[in-house]
Design a binder for these strands. Structure first.
Lengths: 188, 188
DNA sequence: AATAATATGTCAGTCATGTTGACTTTCCAA
DNA sequence: TTGGAAAGTCAACATGACTGACATATTATT
């Protein structure tokens, strides 16, 4: 029982009217910059919120059947993406403390989803790998997540997808953007 | 002290090499659907994760100075967006239980950021409004968030922004998409 | 060889935010 | 007048963050 989402929670059904907050933009000139108005940006933020919720909902549902949560999913994702990475690297990607990661990692190792290998060059390091069992869960989770992504990509089309990724990339912290783009400088 | 993020947490500094997971796509024909490969979709998911983290980081930093967290931000956002909405409507937008919302809402009301007005037609309903103080915090928070969004939008350009929003919209749950689009069927 | 620094792991305590379940009060509507 | 809806509350609990302190290997430096 990891999450246990949405049982008492209400489903939608609004009532009120519109609001009208949006206003001018700081940086002068009217050269077709309507997409930069406060209102447009507020809408973008709201879209991020709603989309992210949907984006995490499918894997969360799967995780409920295990004793795992979103934190486990993230760890599994990055270990799958970069097999053999060490704990510090994973820590940096996840942006949490080692105490927090440790709890997650311990259960994954105990349950035989993740394997630690002592570093050859530096024996202090533990290199992380998914076991076959771990890889199986990873596939389950990312299949579920990809299903929604694929459907959204299809609906929006390749040009939109390109823009989607450009904006997301521009939003990231530079260090993470670097990691995100690792080994594929060519493709946009 | 709401969040208290990033003090012990590490900064980036990776080591390992690339992985190479991506594979074929389920749905046959090679009609320029390279953007739908598993690897591309995995990358999209990762981009969502990194971008969302950056997206919430700025308001989180502001919230640290108050006794508030992200949950308060979300409540304030929607009350600002749709002044006068009732508790049930807010519940549906946030997707949490009323007990969970209540805790947040109570502190916001006690601290004088949110005002409840008894419904005129239905006196059971409480319509929620931001006070001047609440509106001030909302501006602070959304200014911070918008700064990053604006910068990302500028870097990516109007065409990318259009695509960005199309993909996010396609990812949302239908009910929330309806709310998201409320009162602006015209504009894309 | 001794010492410092690094990588990892762990214990203990706290906090924010989510959850269930049970129950009350107020009020609308059939 | 009675049933149900909207709101609010109490209590208990889970998860995943956090801090601080400390232990153990192992590598790097002096």
């Amino acid at each position: 029982m990891a999450s246990g989402r949405m049982t008492e929670a209400k489903t939608i059904g609004l009532s009120g009217g519109p609001s009208g907050i949006g206003s001018g933009i700081g940086s002068g000139g009217s050269e077709g910059l309507l997409y930069l108005t406060d209102e447009q940006l507020r809408r973008g933020a709201e879209a991020m919120f709603f989309a992210y919720r949907a984006f995490t909902a499918d894997p969360d549902r799967i995780l409920e059947n295990y004793a795992y949560g979103r934190a486990h999913h993230r760890a599994i994702h990055f270990i799958n993406r970069q097999p053999g990475l060490n704990v510090n690297a994973l820590l940096a990607l996840l942006g949490v403390t080692k105490q927090s990661l440790n709890r997650v990692l311990r259960t994954l190792i105990e349950d035989g989803l993740v394997e630690q290998r002592v570093g050859r060059r530096d024996k202090r390091e533990r290199h992380l790998h998914l076991t076959e069992k771990g890889a199986a869960l990873e596939r389950d989770l990312s299949d579920a997540q990809r299903a929604r992504m694929r459907s959204a990509y299809r609906q929006a089309g390749p040009a939109a997808v390109l823009g989607f990724r450009q904006v997301l990339e521009a939003m990231m912290d530079p260090d993470l953007r670097r990691f995100y783009n690792e080994g594929r400088e060519g493709q946009p």
